[in-house]
Write a protein that binds this DNA or RNA. Structure first.
Lengths: 168, 168
DNA sequence: ATCATTGCAAAAGATTTGCAAGGTC
DNA sequence: GACCTTGCAAATCTTTTGCAATGAT
């Protein structure tokens, strides 16, 4: 799962870790090493990822902890979403996660060739969404907008492939 | 999976069945009883459904065929999508299907309380989508826009529930 | 007579859950 | 010490696949 940097972080008072600690305390839950490691890893760079990718990356990290089990990863990601740290959506049957806390609202362009996700912001979209909702007397809680297609780079590559093919 | 009627069918030359037969013939595939039964059932009313719901409904139908296996349902639904008869998207981890052939492009409002899907059309959304794509040099192949929230009816019910609760 | 389709069961892929053991407050 | 969290394995859920039997052209 690849990424694209395009939107700037929003000013926030607390670090993700601090915010999570607050969340845990307010619910009588406990901070642990696996959770801390996951939060640090996940917020060390802004990208999109799924549970499996994350598992793989964690294997790479010379764990101060021997190993983080798959179940723990899933359980912790769910907590992060619950805590408002991450947002998740489904892409091709698997859950994809991205930063929520400290990042502005945005939507996605999905390249069906290279599978990369690109972000964009549109105030207009929110206006449209709210107008539609109002018309239908809906109380909006959120939305999901994904534009799919072929990204610029993949279009170029295809043209190149095509030329190569034409020459044969 | 419930439905809402709001958009009018588009004029089409061929019936879904005829269109499917054309599709099959063009690929050397064969028309069978299960497929015909499924196409008739699915196009007998305009609603959203998932594979499981469909299976359940089929059990009800006094089958001229003894039974349609789960695998056949899945395989046939995929063919329908491939043939352009149905469109599918994912909701809470499962595939949801709806009519495509003979129905205008539209997007959805999803009530997270009663799980119903409501349809709406917005030319403006398409314009916005294409503008965003152009900015990113994306070649658009499609999009997915789902507004989630609470529908009018469920809001009323909640208010009623709340009143009842307040009285106790 | 071909060869696509079916039904069943098994497989696959993603995520969740039960439970004993370990860690945190 | 109470009880939340972990890791592992088993379970779940949805969808796909292998295969022998059946059916369409």
């Amino acid at each position: 799962m690849s990424q694209s940097f395009s939107l700037d972080p929003v000013e926030v008072a607390l670090s993700p870790l601090q915010r999570f600690e607050e969340y845990l305390q307010s619910r009588g839950m406990r901070m642990t090493k696996p959770q801390r490691l996951l939060i640090e890893h996940v917020f060390s760079r802004h990208d999109h990822f799924d549970a499996d990718t994350l598992m793989d990356q964690l294997k790479g990290e010379v764990g101060e902890i021997g190993r983080i089990g798959r179940a723990t990863v899933y359980r912790t990601l769910n907590k992060f979403v619950e805590a408002g740290l991450l947002r998740s959506f489904t892409l091709d049957g698997r859950a994809v996660y991205e930063h929520d806390y400290g990042y502005p609202q945005h939507d996605h362009l999905h390249c069906t060739k290279c599978q990369r996700l690109f972000e964009f912001q549109s105030e207009e979209l929110l206006t449209l969404r709210d107008a539609v909702a109002r018309e239908h007397r809906f109380r909006v809680t959120g939305h999901r907008f994904i534009i799919s297609g072929i990204c610029d780079e993949c279009q170029r590559n295809r043209r190149r492939e095509k030329r190569k093919h034409d020459m044969i």
